[in-house]
Design a protein around this nucleic acid. Structure first.
Lengths: 230, 230
DNA sequence: GTCATAGTCAAGTAATTATTAAACTACTTG
DNA sequence: CAAGTAGTTTAATAATTACTTGACTATGAC
């Protein structure tokens, strides 16, 4: 092995690793990955939610695909993209953790934006599991219905945050509620807790979101809910 | 909260996450991170080892610093850079894992380059720990001496691969050797195993490197070795 | 078949990033 | 203090990347 050949190997090796890194270097692609961690989605729905043009979104998805972080299937007119595997979510989770621990600017940004949020009152995942097992809690999935269908915390009921107000009377008084959504920076659960408390119900948010719950190996289910609420 | 303000928050949020992603998007920066996972190093020594100009290396280090992945200290003429925390190595490890699992091209590259390597014969970390506890093995650290001094597997002796040939006679025959180095793609341990076997000794390599061992929480030590071999 | 929709592709432009070379700073040595 | 080394900074250039626009493809509705 000549030194030259060895250098060439290293360049190729780190070149491959950097393919993954490059895919993670765009804010928009990171946002796409977080949305895909909830459920598979069409190009159009991603573009609308993120506020990008369709062509631009498609190109970001090609970039993610060339790094093998996403895969797609075609169904009629629609192309559905999904994460290529559980390790892809794990990667974005670790990246987020590093950002949280190391970037003072991120901490400041979050503190300012969630100034009203009672973070101390959020429920950790293990605690929610314990409460759920003793049937002491009603778990609300506040994400859009399609994400609930693709996968949710076992036993949770789907109440997209925009529907919550008009469905409030369907939620029994005197019970204890825990709402969750896409992740720690998602505000759906915060809004739900606010509404529930304003109506005199006891409510807290889950500290994490559904993808973290699933990654932790906690019980999940998928499909529509068993009829309880319409 | 207006939708506009919410979009602005998300843009800033993912902008912060992308600072980390951008730092990982260059092959050279990933190589720097791997070297720093072994021990702190000066700019000059990084530049020499990677084959970059001093100025370029310095600039990559600034990029890593602005993402808060590295820190530095100044000692006389030299500036020593180090990883900012254990979670930074964790991040680069997860990135590597994703690359290994998802990029067929990486697998091919590694298979071709290590065609001669008896990977099946490599020792996993837990197995080495077991053997070390029953004193059935001599552990050789084949990295440069400075990396050994900064931290090594507890009980290992320092035999930089370039010194191994002339120090062979200091290594008892009839013992069982396990060599390790910087990580799974580092060839020092492979070369050491080759030399040891050629001299009639029993030898295997550790599957992983020192940073993985430390991250697993296995016993480590630092400083020069207790005199056994000079 | 025509039409509409979802998505990709290709070309062009603006913005960002990598690298080099040279100027400059900081520290040590004599 | 002068000289030498380690490192940073700045400016210039080349290469890459992001985004827009418009053309193009594929599918389904009529």
């Amino acid at each position: 092995m000549t030194p030259d050949a060895h250098r060439q190997f290293k360049d190729r090796l780190y070149g491959q690793f950097a393919r993954i890194g490059k895919a993670l270097s765009s804010p928009h692609r990171l946002e796409i990955l977080e949305l895909l961690a909830q459920s598979e989605r069409t190009v159009d729905s991603l573009a609308t939610e993120i506020g990008l043009s369709l062509a631009n979104t498609s190109q970001h998805l090609q970039a993610l695909r060339q790094a093998a972080l996403v895969e797609s299937r075609k169904d009629g007119l629609f192309v559905y993209y999904r994460l290529a595997g559980a390790e892809v979510f794990e990667l974005s989770r670790v990246l987020r953790t590093v950002a949280e621990r190391r970037l003072a600017e991120l901490e400041r940004l979050v503190r300012e934006h969630f100034s009203g949020r009672a973070d101390a009152d959020a429920v950790p995942m293990a605690e929610l599991l314990k409460r759920a097992r003793s049937h002491r809690v009603v778990i609300l999935d506040t994400r859009p219905a399609s994400e609930y269908v693709a996968g949710h915390i076992a036993g949770a009921i789907s109440v997209p945050v925009d529907d919550l107000h008009r469905r409030l009377q369907q939620l029994a008084r005197g019970r204890e509620y825990v709402a969750y959504c896409r992740g720690p920076y998602c505000v759906y659960a915060d809004r739900a807790v606010e509404l529930l408390r304003a109506s005199g119900r006891r409510a807290q948010r889950l500290l994490d979101g559904f993808p973290e719950w699933r990654a932790a190996g906690f019980p999940v289910a998928s499909g529509v809910q068993p009829g309880a609420l319409k």
